[in-house]
């Protein structure tokens, strides 16, 4: 039992960077923009978070810096795609190249250093409850922030007026514009939020999960986060399901190996992508349901006629 709790604890924490990056990208895509530069923004967040945390001695400052770095990178993407109307797919790929390079350059003096990881919160009494205590009430604050963000985004998109506008912009930017909403401003705001989330996701890797800096340490997680958004069919709650499917499969197979179960890890790691395609097909083949989920204007350029 104790072992099961430990394993589950590991599974809860492992996909947190994916949750951050994916929930941010979800908001971006809901506004009708496809930013493929997630990997670049995550790695910038990772080095910003690590370097500032190390130099200032404050993890909070590090996380804030990571959010800022991600948002700035997303801002560049926003100016190019929203103001200068460059193609989103190409610009996102360029952002990844740029981000990986800049992060490596920035991090040159930080290789081989290490910070103390974020302390876990032990919620008084609650964390002592057997089983549920360690599973639910004994993580670091960013875990709770990640879950709160998912809930917050779900509430924002479905219950607030601003969320409605954001969705309207993603559904039909011409109509939204005609009603008088500022499409570009809405999308910029979504992009900045998405960039900040990706930055924090990267910083979670470099300051909490493995508190050090090495080049390419995000190792493709930005791309997985993109898959998770699709898997989630653009619903915030399902981002958690997706993140735990992708991240959880990895941890579970590591444990399975430890128990001596022979499994082919390579085939297993294809599974989440295939499941994602299946989910996409299921939600897409019914046109009525697809309009509930997929933003109709995804990756389409918007030019304000006025």
């Amino acid at each position: 039992m104790e072992l099961a709790v430990l394993i589950l604890q590991g599974i809860i924490v492992a996909p947190i960077p994916l949750v951050f990056a994916a929930i941010g990208e979800l908001v971006v895509e809901r506004s009708g923009v496809l930013n493929l530069g997630l990997e670049g923004m995550m790695i910038l967040g990772a080095i910003a978070g690590f370097s500032v945390a190390l130099d200032s001695g404050s993890l909070v400052a590090g996380i804030a810096a990571a959010a800022l770095a991600g948002a700035i990178a997303a801002g560049i993407f926003g100016i190019l795609t929203q103001v200068l109307l460059s193609n989103q797919v190409a610009t996102g790929l360029a952002l990844t190249i740029f981000g990986l390079g800049l992060a490596a350059l920035w991090g040159q003096g930080y290789s081989g250093e290490s910070t103390a990881p974020l302390a876990k919160i032990h919620i008084f009494l609650l964390s002592d409850i057997p089983i549920a205590g360690p599973l639910l009430f004994a993580h670091d604050p960013l875990v709770y922030l990640a879950f709160a963000l998912v809930a917050g985004v779900a509430w924002f998109l479905s219950k607030t007026r601003a969320g409605l506008i954001l969705r309207a912009v993603g559904e039909n930017h011409d109509a939204a514009h005609a009603i008088g909403y500022n499409v570009v401003a809405v999308r910029m705001a979504a992009l900045l939020f998405g960039g900040a989330c990706a930055g924090v996701g990267g910083a979670y890797l470099s300051t909490v999960q493995t508190p050090f800096w090495v080049e390419n340490m995000t190792a493709g997680r930005g791309w997985i986060a993109l898959a998770i958004v699709v898997f989630a069919s653009w619903r915030p709650g399902r981002v958690l399901v997706g993140a735990y499917l992708f991240g959880g499969v990895t941890v579970a197979q590591l444990h399975a190996q430890g128990f001596g179960i022979d499994i082919d890890a390579q085939y297993l790691s294809m599974l989440p992508y295939l499941v994602t395609i299946l989910v996409l097909v299921l939600i897409s083949h019914n046109k009525a349901r697809v309009s509930l989920n997929a933003p109709a204007c995804l990756a389409k350029p918007f030019f304000a006629p006025s």
Binding site: L95, I97, F98, G99, L100, G101, L102, A104, L105, Q108
Partner: peptide
């Protein structure tokens, strides 16, 4: 460093 050429390319 290869990082510089990545930034430049970006």
């Amino acid at each position: 460093p290869s990082a510089v050429t990545g930034v430049f390319q970006g």
